[in-house]
Design a binder for these strands. Structure first.
Lengths: 339, 339
DNA sequence: GATCGGTATGTAAACCTTTACATCGCATAT
DNA sequence: ATATGCGATGTAAAGGTTTACATACCGATC
């Protein structure tokens, strides 16, 4: 019941009647110690319940086997399955994963940076844009880092994520192929790189279909449910309406569908909606949301692989790994209503 | 551009022309060092960009200022706001928070336990039931721990969470007051303590209203969306139907509403549904879900407070802190349809 | 002027590892 | 019989802190 202090390597050594060096070797280089000795050591370990003090180990070795994942919002529905990808890959290479939640607060970011500076983690994974600290000075002594899911704005940190442009283009093309010509883009942004690229995919597709710019409607938004709802209101103050809503992400799409339902429209009969991300809820909307699927676990896996690789040899140039997403057809897109 | 090794306390000492002891004191016990010296040290710190190596510090002191939060599923929509409560409270006391994701895998739990054994974290917060490791041996040398959101089954670990029984009772009473008499309970469980208690709240309320046991319908379920959907199917194989569904949590309610819509029913006209938790999506369902709101940030705050307190003086007995939840009325409950 | 008390600082040990280097035995080659 | 080499083990330093204890200094007290 009482908390005894954990056994140290010395306790094991004493019990096995060897030196601490031998214990250490028996654990990490078993082939370097005689079989009989090894057995005695292992027995002693079992008896004492010894588990090596990772902190002392990292202090001595100048590197740990933990990777820190920094996320501004762990509630992001994309995060959890990306994380699983990250973890599986890390695990396969003998690394553990810890998560830090910055809440977009630079102070908290700094706190975790100290954690890194103390070698308590060997590498850093940045989830969703924005470096978590004033990057000028700190970037200097940053450990190996990789951005995942969204590139870090204005930095050269290597990035692994979806091919936003191509994905958005697929979405727009699907809308076009269903017969839509007046397609609104909801969730335009000046600062979020991933969203900028999705906007570009939209433009590319509409250019190719020779939809003139004046038939395009583009509404700003920060990619939240609320922003989608708002966009509907703004759009209804205009004289012409779109027949389809292409949303920068699923959250926006939820807001749009909500706003439309609230106005008494019947989806997908009256309007088509398409999203981007394929968040878990997408299936449970009514109608179920047609969207672009983020290959989340692949992204996680590859991001971690890149990071782990850069631990041994620093990456040459800044790199971007883009993964192609697929269209997921559900019920929210139909041919445009005649009106 | 190149990664220089971080400055150590020695670098600072040399620059300020004092001993390392004085530097350490200047940082942690400023009143113990002369003003002029302190200034020199601070200057040196600024120049070198020194930040104390938390690992060496913890190694020496035998305790860190990080708290580890272990979650089997960080995708749980309840997790994120509880976490914020935890973090804010921790921060106010000079502690940082790290998250470990166990995915219900005991191996991973063990890995994080090693982390704790190395004093890399001073305390442990267990989110949502189930100790993350075979607890017999390990429980012995567990650091101060608190369970949050759901008690750990069959353990004496202190617990902070919602008053499930009282909350469920509120829900059932609301349904009764709306005129319902045939109320089904969806999501019964034998192993999840929190769910057991919600079931109890249901029984208590129906007892008080003198609803005979044969009019109660109780369907098993593990609290997932899918389980809710399934429950609807099971229920429709019976001869009598309920007029209202009381769901063990919101996820189940989503499944139930989905199943009902799929069968062509019109909610809330044909059936009433009530949930428990008030997850963020609850507002966006159609109809918006009437439910019991988890006081999430309060739970987080109090759990961390309890843990931090138990760091200085071990808790006497096993404790449970139960917080009373409120009913949130939205659109999914009406009077029963006449049929 | 010697003693005392108090404040400011320094010295060195301790926390728990890993690992370069040294040592020891023993078998093989000469 | 001596030299050589090799495998198994031990010794001790190093990694960056904190802190008990020792020292040095200075002003005040007798």
């Amino acid at each position: 019941m009482s908390i005894q202090t954990p056994a140290t390597i010395e306790d094991v050594a004493r019990l096995a009647e060897v030196s601490i060096a031998t214990v250490s070797r028996a654990i990490h280089n078993p082939e370097k110690v005689a079989k009989s000795t090894r057995q005695r050591v292992n027995q002693a370990i079992a008896i004492t319940g010894y588990t090596t003090n990772a902190m002392a180990r990292s202090l001595r070795m100048g590197r740990s086997n933990m990777i820190l994942v920094l996320a501004p919002d762990i509630g992001d529905p994309n995060f959890s399955s990306i994380l699983i990808g990250l973890e599986n890959e890390a695990r396969a290479h003998g690394y553990g994963v810890l998560i830090g939640h910055t809440q977009n607060d630079p102070e908290r970011g700094l706190e975790y940076l100290k954690f890194l500076n103390s070698n308590q983690a060997a590498g850093l994974l940045l989830f969703t844009g924005h470096a978590p600290f004033g990057h000028q000075e700190m970037t200097q002594r940053l450990p190996p880092s990789v951005a995942v899911f969204e590139p870090v704005f204005g930095s050269t940190i290597p990035y692994v994520g979806v091919d936003d442009t191509a994905g958005a283009r697929k979405a727009a093309e699907y809308l076009l192929s269903a017969g839509h010509r007046r397609i609104a883009f909801i969730g335009d942004s000046k600062t979020r790189l991933g969203h900028l690229r999705r906007r570009r995919g939209y433009d590319l597709a509409l250019d190719a279909a020779r939809i003139p710019p004046e038939q395009r409607m583009v509404i700003d938004g920060e990619g939240t449910i609320e922003s989608g709802r708002l966009a509907v209101e703004q759009l209804f103050m205009r004289d012409t309406l779109p027949t389809a809503f292409m949303c920068v992400n699923d959250a926006t799409a939820v807001g749009v569908m909500n706003g439309l339902s609230a106005r008494g429209y019947d989806l997908p009969k009256d309007f088509s909606v398409i999203g981007f991300d394929d968040v878990p809820q997408a299936t449970y909307l009514n109608p179920a949301l047609t969207t672009i699927r983020q290959p989340r676990s692949a992204i996680g896996r590859q991001a971690m692989a890149l990071l782990l690789q850069s631990l041994s040899q620093p990456l040459a140039e800044s790199r971007e790994v883009l993964i192609m997403p697929d269209l997921v057809v559900r019920g929210s897109v139909t041919s445009p209503a005649k009106r």
